[in-house]
């Protein structure tokens, strides 16, 4: 490669940076998936809680664990809190879906550019070997 032309070197450099960007994107996507999974689990749990809270009798004592202590809460308040939380999580999930879609699009375009770069390099190398 010591004899490679500046164009070829540049192309290879380009390819490297693009590949790095792509791997970063893929990491992001993986992270996003992880977060999304967690949120889905939480959503399921909160829905369970809501169901149980609705089944509780009016005068039941409800506590919320905050750190190491249990704080007594009104049932209605707890109910409202859980609802709000479910809403929040749903919104978050939607947002995550959007970003995930975005990232995947970016990933695909990056892959395309990478492919093109590879082809270019191959052409360059072929020309080199011929000359």
């Amino acid at each position: 490669m010591a004899t490679s032309s500046p164009a070829l070197r540049e192309a290879q450099h380009d390819l490297e940076t693009q590949a790095n960007a792509l791997s970063k994107l893929q990491k992001d996507i993986a992270k996003n998936h992880q977060v999304r999974k967690q949120y889905t689990i939480q959503l399921g749990e909160n829905e369970l809680v809501l169901k149980e809270l609705e089944l509780l009798s009016e005068d039941a004592n409800v506590y919320k664990q905050i750190g190491p202590v249990l704080v007594k809460q009104d049932l209605a308040e707890a109910n409202a809190n859980v609802r709000k939380r479910i809403e929040y999580i749903s919104g978050e999930l939607k947002r995550l879906d959007g970003t995930l879609q975005d990232l995947e699009d970016k990933q695909n375009s990056k892959k395309d550019t990478l492919l093109k770069l590879q082809q270019k390099i191959q052409v360059l190398q072929a020309g080199k070997s011929k000359s």
Binding site: L48, L55, Q65
Partner: peptide, 17 residues
């Protein structure tokens, strides 16, 4: 109950949950 929420319950209620 999940997500940090606790409730005082009798045995029967707990069994139901």
């Amino acid at each position: 109950l999940g997500d940090g929420y606790y409730a005082d319950q009798t045995s029967r209620q707990t069994a139901e949950i």
